[in-house]
């Protein structure tokens, strides 16, 4: 399942970053978001804006197109 399909307040355990831009992926890793971690969708901004995510109590925002790359399973 893609992260973009996850509903608000649901959690996805990340399995794969797909073909996400390598620098973007590197930054996510450095922020502690990598394969095996669960992220919760907090909010989708309107008009295809960024998606707010939570990972272990830490909030961050990424763009919608990047949420299309992240795949995993619902927890």
């Amino acid at each position: 399942m893609k992260l973009s399909e996850v509903k608000i307040n649901e959690k996805l355990r990340i399995e794969d970053f797909g073909d996400m831009d390598s620098q973007m992926r590197r930054r996510l890793k450095e922020m502690g978001v990598f394969e095996g971690k669960s992220v919760k969708v907090v909010r989708y901004c309107p008009l295809g804006g960024p998606c707010l995510l939570e990972c272990e109590g830490q909030l961050f925002g990424i763009r919608k197109k990047d949420t299309l790359c992240i795949k995993g399973e619902l927890v």
Partner: peptide, 11 residues
Amino acid sequence: EKSYFIMDLPP
């Protein structure tokens, strides 16, 4: 260029 965005939201 490729554009990307990632923003850390502190408490």
